[in-house]
Amino acid sequence: MSTVGALNDEALKRKERLKALRDKRAAPKTIPDVDKETDEIKEKERLPKPSFRSYNPGSEKLKDLSMDVIKPSDVTDIIKDQIDAGKTEHVVSEVDLNNLAPRKPDWDLKRDVSKKLEKLERHTQRAIAELIRERLKASQDDLAYVVMGEGIRRKVDDDDDDD
């Protein structure tokens, strides 16, 4: 219940402030000519002054606000200096071909796939090792023949036949 009383007190204070503001606004209007002159001066200061660049106003009051016609400056000397500066030969002693050569079109693909390829390479090595183990278990032949495969065995057998 104490909050209701506090809210009522705040509402009364707000009403008093609003009434004081209304009285404050109404008071300057009652004073005659002096306030009107100051209001007009303040209003003139507040309003922006127009500046006429490409328009010639008909009114004499506004002609004072128009800007003078400005002719463009001669820039030929500046342009000639810039052209002469561009004609000087710059000698490059060292050229880095890596910076000049364009990258291969698939460099970004290789970059993105490299991690997956490393993982795949590990799986491939495991699979090859597993195949070698299976061959060793299947045949009790010499380890070198099993690891190198049948091609070396045939080559060695052919060499033995020639002797």
Rank of each mutant, 00 (worst) to 15 (best):
G5A: 06
G5I: 12
A6G: 09
D9M: 04
A11Q: 02
A11C: 06
R14W: 02
K15S: 07
K15D: 04
E16S: 07
L18V: 09
K19N: 12
L21I: 06
L21V: 09
R22T: 09
R22I: 08
D23L: 05
D23Y: 04
R25F: 15
R25W: 10
A26T: 13
K29D: 12
P32N: 06
P32G: 07
V34Q: 11
D35E: 12
E37R: 11
E37T: 12
E37M: 14
T38N: 14
I41Q: 05
K42D: 10
K42I: 15
K42T: 01
K44A: 00
K44D: 03
K44P: 00
E45Y: 02
P48M: 03
K49F: 07
S51P: 02
S51Q: 08
R53Q: 07
R53S: 05
S54L: 06
S54W: 03
S54P: 00
N56K: 10
N56F: 11
N56R: 11
P57L: 03
E60W: 13
K61F: 14
K61W: 15
L62P: 02
S66C: 11
M67E: 14
D68G: 13
D68C: 13
D68T: 14
K71R: 15
K71N: 15
P72A: 14
T76E: 02
I78C: 01
I79F: 04
I79M: 05
I79N: 02
I83W: 00
I83H: 00
D84K: 05
A85D: 08
A85M: 10
G86H: 01
G86M: 05
E89N: 06
H90E: 11
V91S: 09
V91H: 13
V92Q: 08
S93V: 13
V95W: 13
V95E: 09
D96N: 13
P102I: 13
R103D: 11
P105V: 13
D106I: 12
D106G: 09
L109P: 01
L109A: 15
L109I: 12
K110C: 11
D112S: 15
V113C: 01
E118Q: 15
E118K: 14
E118V: 11
